[in-house]
């Protein structure tokens, strides 16, 4: 057995070997990186020229990575925290708009990987998932993992860019990164990463969730008194509009369980989408459930995700509305 982080380290090295255009940027990446994601790459001398240590500031790292991508490289930027991405929002905006402004055919093949949410007892900005900030950046693809054994496959898929995908942020919930997995049983992704994934096939109520919330929703669905359809969004931007509408219409009742701040972000977009295009199919108000808000102390960081009890209670109330 190995941890998810260790397996991700193997994937990072594989990605570098598979495509010489790939380079890895980040703090201490030549020494294994802050999360150890370049430990395997460091052991291969042939890869070391493409491990680029950079200063700490997010803006510098992100604009440098964008320049590398303009020059034909495929940068993989390992961020210490999603909070660093928020610091670099201006650079993200410039990166996503570059191809249209500069009249080039393809978007910049830039992948940013950041741990997010509670998990390491950090609290504060490090414990947030910043999804509401990131999805404000037009043209930025935002993916978030939920099933740890699939993280390696998700990283491989996000790093592809063969279809001209937009600059991408891959968020990895911290509370899942130290889980153990069988490295020989790395799972392939069953669905495309731009489509919602149905994890439980109930027919009375649909839950939309993502990232660190998914596991708790699945447990709550087992306890609930109704037949629950659990869907993992995977792609928070762009949203799979057709998949969301189909799932909502299938049950007529919707709960959105968010590990993110309640303002802006995918929760609000989903609610607006359903009001706009599925209102006549709904039998109950759309319920939005989220965890603790504000500047959260380390000891309370796991409250950022709604509890299983709160989710279960909400599912039952909405199912019987």
């Amino acid at each position: 057995m190995t941890t998810v982080l260790e397996q991700l380290s193997t994937v990072v090295a594989d990605l570098l070997r598979e495509d010489r255009r790939r380079v890895v940027l980040g703090e201490d990446v030549r020494d294994g990186g802050m999360l150890g994601l370049t430990r395997a790459a460091v052991e291969d001398e042939a890869l070391s020229p493409r491990l680029l240590g950079l200063p700490l500031t997010s803006t510098a790292g992100l604009t440098h990575a964008a320049g590398l991508a303009i020059g034909g490289a495929r940068p993989l930027v390992l961020m210490p925290s999603v909070a660093a991405l928020v610091e670099g929002l201006a650079a993200l905006r410039e990166t996503t708009r570059f191809s249209k402004r500069y009249d080039t055919e393809r978007a910049l093949p830039l992948l940013l990987v950041a741990p997010c949410g509670p998990g390491f007892g950090l609290g504060g900005d490090a414990a947030m998932d910043a999804v509401s900030h990131l999805t404000c950046v037009e043209g930025l693809r935002v993916l978030v993992g939920a099933e740890p054994s699939e993280f390696p496959a998700l990283l491989r898929a996000a790093a592809s860019f063969d279809a001209g995908e937009s600059p991408t942020v891959l968020l990895l919930p911290r509370n899942l990164l130290l889980r153990e997995m069988d490295p020989t049983a790395e799972e392939d992704l069953e669905d495309a990463i731009d489509q919602v994934r149905t994890l439980e096939h109930g027919d009375e109520l649909t839950v939309f969730c993502w990232g660190a919330a998914v596991e708790r929703v699945q447990q709550a669905a087992q306890r609930a008194d109704a037949s629950i359809r659990v869907t993992d969004l995977v792609s928070l931007q762009p949203l799979d509009r057709d998949g969301i509408l189909e799932a909502a219409r299938a049950t007529g009742r919707v709960v959105i369980v968010s590990p993110s701040a309640p303002s802006n972000g995918p929760s609000c977009q989903i609610a607006a989408l359903l009001a706009d295009e599925a209102i006549l199919h709904l039998d109950a108000p759309v319920k939005h459930l989220y965890g603790r808000t504000g500047d959260v102390e380390a000891r309370h960081e796991h409250d950022l995700i709604p509890s299983i009890d709160a989710i279960t209670s909400t599912l039952n109330a909405t199912a019987t509305y």
Binding site: L52, T59, A60, L62, T63, H64, A65, A66, G67, L68, A69, I70, G71, G72, A73, P75, A90, A91, E94, F98
Partner: peptide
Amino acid sequence: LQVGMATGFAHA
């Protein structure tokens, strides 16, 4: 920020 992009480009 275009100067940061320029250094990245030169790096490539």
